[in-house]
Design a protein around this nucleic acid. Structure first.
Lengths: 227, 227, 227, 227
DNA sequence: GATGAATGAGGTTTCATTCAT
DNA sequence: TATGAATGAAACCTCATTCAT
């Protein structure tokens, strides 16, 4: 009989997780790390990014700063992990585009579905996305990479829809599909990020969704949306 | 008829500007203040907002931190002033909308003009706008107010164009003009802010402009733009 | 005929007042100096001595720190002047002792008068006296001198009463009159300084006065006071 | 009968002491804290309260300011702890009053013992008492509380002696015992605090003691002290 | 006589970071 | 694995102080 239970527990949950001292963290260690991540997220949500400090995260997590350094070199590193997790979860947005129908009479519904998904996603990740946007803007390559990874699939998928519309002769050939898609993604991202800002003008979310969806629908299909 | 507006505007600074000790600064003081503002802008451009320090601004301006504190309570306060100046200068964007023609055959040119103005304006104020966006997102009311002031006129102007199109029957009555306009402004703002991000996909600025202008043009007039 | 009106106005209001630049201040200057003194007193009253700053005094007086330095080298110097003025005004306490009657049947009334005068005086000069006491305690000779000047006359006057009582055989010859007087002055000063502290124990001022006067009356005359 | 009080008191520090970061300090930490307290006391003794700085205390203690802030928010807080310790040690003064005899012929000796204890106690705690007095005067409730705690037992004990004398008919019933006692404590406190000031008048300590004791003795018993 | 303006100097305070346990 | 404890380093911030006007 073979040895079914190895003495050394197989823990391949993470292929590369290492603590500061080089050791691969065990169960307890990973729990601590996770707690620190959660608290980083919490601080990011409740505090201006400028003011998020290792000390506060540690206190929030009920540990000491020394423990934080066991798992992350600095706040930015922890934020980077959060950003990666977030980007991971954003992949479903692409499916809405590729699996939805963009045929006449159905495009608007698909667009609305996409808009809603954007609004929800951005809202539940606003604090991390805020930092991603800022850091990207400030030229931080690591965050920029994550941002691209998040948006690339979406943009590419939308561009493909544009390309179909060009084949069908509904969108001029002179249009660059990626440019068209990118512009729409920008609109979705920004509107989603600042959706509460629109309240200032008394604009109701329903109307906002409608306008967003119209632009997307027309933008990628060239079909004039019905009322 | 006589000219009621004097060529040299009478500057009524006296009532607003105050140094830290409550006094109204004189000529020399105002010059120093201005120099500090310029250096704050410079630091904001070259450094991550997180890392902009009073001491650096002061050094850059050839003064001491104490002097900085004579005029501003902290970096944020100076940034706020810069943001206000920026918003002031953004007012011309509105004129492009109100004075341009949105008639068939001309709308696309006007839209392009607007897009270009946006790109230029955002580019030359990117560092301040970046902070305005961040702070607004973080819930800072003062920055939010400035942001609204900057975008409000533009959005309102665009909404008026939408309203005309609705009268002409080219845009459905169910559309909320402000929502439609707001979405387009969001697109313009975000694309402008991240225009260099598009380079990643090899999208050329010309194509980007075209796509932006198309969305704007159709969005506010309902007229399908020519190739 | 002699020259009755000198060209140079005779201003001998103060024999030695000099501003920082060596000039003898005129009318306006003296007014400013007085205002600064008043504000110093005010700050001393409203703020912990530790936290009284030149800057605050100046602001309070509606001038700039530079003006303060025109008249005083530092806060301590201004306080010293206030202390001197205070000591000046304390001279009347001596008269109560020397001009009052310490005969049997009248001593208690005189003692009460003295006690009341002490309570009033200390109360209206508490903030300055507080600093005088502190600085004296900390070994500052200048303040100590003022303190002595204030208390010396009182103590000496009381000691003289003691001496009379010794002659009359009502107080033992072994007693040092100055020691006896000094102890009583200490009691008066401290009780007066902390009179509000007694409220804690629910002791009414009337009872406090009575107790103080009894100790004084007996202490200097040897006569047992009536109920 | 068994001894219910253990020789070694069980110290229940654990619930009170907290470092700045909210943690309960261990052995080493408590030692450092103690060292900082000792140095604060030293600075208080050698320097004017106005000029006691965190940086000096830290230097004196051979640590850095950062360490000081780990244990105290500011100089005042450390002083407050010192004051509390001091008040603790002042409790023995009460025993002299309650356990001493105030009978005719013995009262003066007890009074002298009390006076001496006061002089010694005040002398060995002068620097802290100086701050306590000042802060109390300036309206700082925390110091006032400590001051009251220190003096309360003594005053109450003396008042009880007065009450006995009233029963024996040697002190008028109209006297408020607490007032009488409070006035005497004030005298003791102030004379002790300024005992060196009396040197100015060439008053010898022996004579001062005598005068103080006479006032106390008569004040609480109504018995005329012998020479 | 008064004071804008500037700033050297120095204490305060906060943190990231390390290390021994 | 976790963390008390300590601290270098650096920014913050405030003031006293000066000087030219």
């Amino acid at each position: 009989m073979s040895e079914p239970t190895p003495l050394r527990r197989v823990e391949d949950h993470s292929e590369e997780l290492r603590a500061a001292d080089g050791r691969v963290p065990g169960l307890r260690g990973r729990a601590t790390r996770q707690r620190l991540l959660a608290c980083t997220l919490e601080m990011l949500t409740s505090t201006s990014y400028r003011d998020v400090k290792v000390i506060d995260i540690a206190r929030e997590a009920g540990t000491s700063p020394a423990t934080f350094y066991q798992y992350f070199p600095d706040v930015e590193a922890a934020t980077l992990v959060l950003a990666e997790e977030m980007a991971q979860q954003g992949q479903h947005l692409r499916l809405i585009i590729t699996e939805g129908s963009w045929l006449e009479g159905e495009a608007m519904a698909t667009a609305l579905e996409l808009v809603d998904a954007f609004l929800v996603f951005w809202d539940s990740h606003r604090s991390v996305l805020r930092v991603v946007d800022l850091a990207t803007d400030e030229g931080d390559g690591r965050f920029q990479k994550i941002r691209v990874r998040l948006l690339n699939d979406i943009t590419t998928a939308l561009a493909e829809v544009v390309r179909q519309a060009q084949k069908a002769g509904r969108i001029p050939k002179t249009i660059d599909p990626m440019a068209a898609a990118g512009v729409l993604v920008a609109m979705l991202a920004h509107t989603a990020a600042h959706q509460y800002g629109f309240e200032f003008w008394g604009i109701r979310t329903a109307k906002l969704r409608q306008s967003m969806a119209r632009q997307v629908s027309w933008g990628v299909t060239g079909i004039i949306p019905p009322d």
